Amino acid sequence: MSQFRLNRLFNPSSGRALDVAVDHGFFGEPSFVRGIEDMDAVVATLVRANPDAIQLTLGQARILQSIPGKLKPALVLRTDVANVYGNPLDDHIFSHHVPHAVEEAVRLDAVAICANLMDLPGRAEIREANILSIMALREQATRFNMPLMIEPLVMQDNAKAGGGYMVDGDTDRIVALVRQAKELGADLIKADPTDDISDYSKVIAVAGDVPVLVRGGGRVDDRTLLERTVAVLDQGASGIVYGRNVVQHPKPAGITAALMAVLHRGESVENALAIVEGSEG
């Protein structure tokens, strides 16, 4: 059963998970690589901080899995690559999944794979490519009992974003895309926060029995990040998938400890901020 792998992702006491995404280099956008140029050092830092999981690509996953011992974060494997984040965008945009991605995930001892489901205004072909990838991955994920995390990404029109697609927090669009992810067979859903964070219960409701982990998106200040985290957890989110807000933080270990305290011990925002302040890195 895929639940066997998920048992290594979710904390047994809280039932929640922090997955730190460090798959940004896959997308070929220069700004995404800032702070994660030395992936050996980044992964070593995160392993010491000990989140529940680290999300990596096929080419970087071996850094984590070559570290000896049982007490390290689980691996979530990113399986698809796209070029939708450029500023300006390329003339031709695409999205493809890695061939034999699920077999690679099994060989790498991943607890789940992750694939996009993007809603880009005026670019239905990207959503079609994502759906085709998800259906192919779903077939193999079922065969190998590999949990499939689908990442619904509702994007703004490129002109509004000033070049390069940016997240759209429209509740109705997020709810519709999350529902499509569930219909396509997601075992986990990684979804953006809504602009009106009090709406997030609608996202949780439409996902039904599929656990929802909330994306972090671009860098925000610590208080905003922690307040948003508490808000989505209070509405039923099963965890968070944060990337740049951890790896580009001046104290990545400190913010990881603070987030884990909120997730697994129910610490307040103020206590979590104190953890960051008192940390060394």
Rank of each mutant, 00 (worst) to 15 (best):
V212I: 09
G59H: 11
V247M: 06
R219H: 11
E128A: 14
V47N: 02
A205H: 11
R107E: 13
E139V: 15
M149F: 03
L213D: 01
A261G: 14
S2I: 11
V206T: 15
H92F: 10
N11L: 01
V98E: 15
I240L: 15
A257E: 15
V276W: 06
A110K: 00
R78W: 05
A61T: 04
D168I: 00
I197A: 12
L225N: 06
A258G: 10
M260N: 12
F4V: 12
N158M: 05
A82R: 05
I240T: 10
S66K: 10
V167I: 15
L233W: 07
V241M: 12
E37V: 09
H249L: 06
A21P: 00
A101C: 08
D172R: 12
G281E: 14
T142R: 15
V214T: 13
L117W: 04
A105N: 01
M146V: 08
K70L: 11
D222W: 11
I131W: 07
E227Y: 01
R143Y: 13
V276F: 07
R265L: 04
A105Y: 02
P252L: 05
I131P: 00
A41H: 10
S238F: 09
G254A: 05
M146L: 13
I126S: 07
V214K: 04
R34Y: 15
R107A: 15
L188H: 04
H264E: 03
R8V: 00
L259E: 09
L6I: 01
I54N: 02
R265V: 00
G69P: 02
Q60L: 13
H92M: 15
F94Y: 15
V84R: 09
V230W: 09
S198Q: 13
E37N: 09
V175D: 11
E227A: 01
L153H: 07
R34C: 09
G218E: 14
A41P: 00
S66P: 02
P193D: 08
D91N: 14
A110D: 00
M39C: 08
D221N: 14
K70T: 12
I54A: 06
G281M: 11
N245D: 02
N116Y: 13
A136M: 10
E29F: 14
A159L: 13
M166P: 05
D80F: 00
K182Q: 13
A237W: 10
I54Q: 07
P51N: 04
R173C: 06
S95K: 02
D90M: 12
L188C: 01
N158S: 09
E183C: 00
V81K: 14
M149D: 07
A115T: 10
M118K: 03
V232K: 03
N7E: 15
Y165F: 15
S198N: 13
F94Q: 09
I131Y: 05
P193T: 07
P147N: 10
Q60P: 00
L188P: 03
L56V: 11
